[in-house]
Amino acid sequence: MLSIATHEFKSRLKSTIIWGVCLFGFSLLFSAAHSTFSKELPVLLENFPQELDGLFGEFAQVASPEGWLGFEYYSIIIPLLLPAVAISAGASAIGDEEKNGTLELLLASPKSRVNIAGQKILSVLSQQVVLSLVLVMSIWIGKVLFDFNVSMQPVIVASCAAGFLGTFFGMSAMLVQNIFKNKSIAVGVCSVMLVVSYICHVLSQIIEDLESLKYLSAMHYYNGPKLLTGLSSEEILLIPILVITTLLIIANLIIFHLRDIK
């Protein structure tokens, strides 16, 4: 029933495992490093310029385990890594089949185009779910191994937000591929989107006059570090990402249903 999604997920299994191992390593590194640096952190805190918060996250919160994760890990590494993986998966989901000529075999089967595209979308979503789970699990293992007394609930919420952010970029890449029928263009356009989004987010935090740029940045709606530290209970900020991602999924289904396969 879900043979296309299963096949797609299996074909991406190696890369999912590699990225999972990377995330696992990062999580353990951050968990272990907190216990090592926790004594020196108050001193660092006094000398850290507040303006750099925009670049690395909320340094004021760094003494707490949640703040430590929000600083750099959930403010730079995760919101760049998960979307990067999703962009590759989203652009390849139909793009690889189209490029390799195997898409015709799928289309010649008695499955509707909506079904085929839906299963491809499901495979991209599954990869993000797996990586978000690895993220949560690895931090939990770090907590157990390294006396890293982090509260797991905000970690779960922030990891879900990262998964949503990744899915948003994955669906964007799939849509660009669907429109231009070209995987490379999809990867290029969405990578630029990701970098611009990050730059807008940073600029909006360090330059007061550019604060309104934050609304153009997907990172602003992801809001991972603040979800971790509980500085704001702004899960509501995720709504625009979820709504746009849903619209992107619908657009992907419609465009794939209507377009010519050359």
């Binding site: 096949h7 074909s11 390799n100 000529g101 195997t102 015709e104 075999l105 010649a108 089967s109 008695p110 499955k111 509707s112």
Partner: peptide, 21 residues
């Protein structure tokens, strides 16, 4: 009726491509 039709069709593409792996 594309989906219904394809239940009864066998198709060979001009450039035969199958999953290499």
């Amino acid at each position: 009726n594309s989906t219904e039709i394809k239940k009864h069709i066998g198709y060979l593409a001009g450039s035969a491509e199958v999953y290499e792996e």
